[in-house]
């Protein structure tokens, strides 16, 4: 996994799912899942309304 989700911050809105260019994210109830197609591009982290996502270098 190359994006870290701070689950104490995440508002499970799914905005990150909509911007992921490769469809690597999925929102299941309150849980963001990230699969191994993630390219580390960081768009999800950029647009997160609460800053719950961070690219792991």
């Amino acid at each position: 996994m190359s994006v870290n989700v701070n689950r104490y911050k995440c508002g499970y809105c799914g905005a990150c799912v909509g911007v992921c260019p490769v469809g690597a994210l999925e929102l299941v109830e309150t849980w963001i899942e990230i699969d191994n197609t993630c390219t580390n591009c960081g768009v999800c982290a950029k647009i997160c309304p609460v800053g719950a996502l961070a690219v792991v270098k």
């Binding site: 799914g14 799912v17 909509g18 911007v19 992921c20 469809g23 999925e26 647009i47 309304p49």
Partner: peptide, 26 residues
């Protein structure tokens, strides 16, 4: 299936939003 739509992508329609195509809100 809303802003996080997967159905379109599975069906071969690129619905992914660029940062200019989304308003992020609280």
């Amino acid at each position: 299936d809303g802003v996080e739509s997967k159905v379109g992508r599975w069906g071969g329609i690129d619905t992914s939003l660029k940062p200019d195509d989304i308003d992020t809100c609280a």
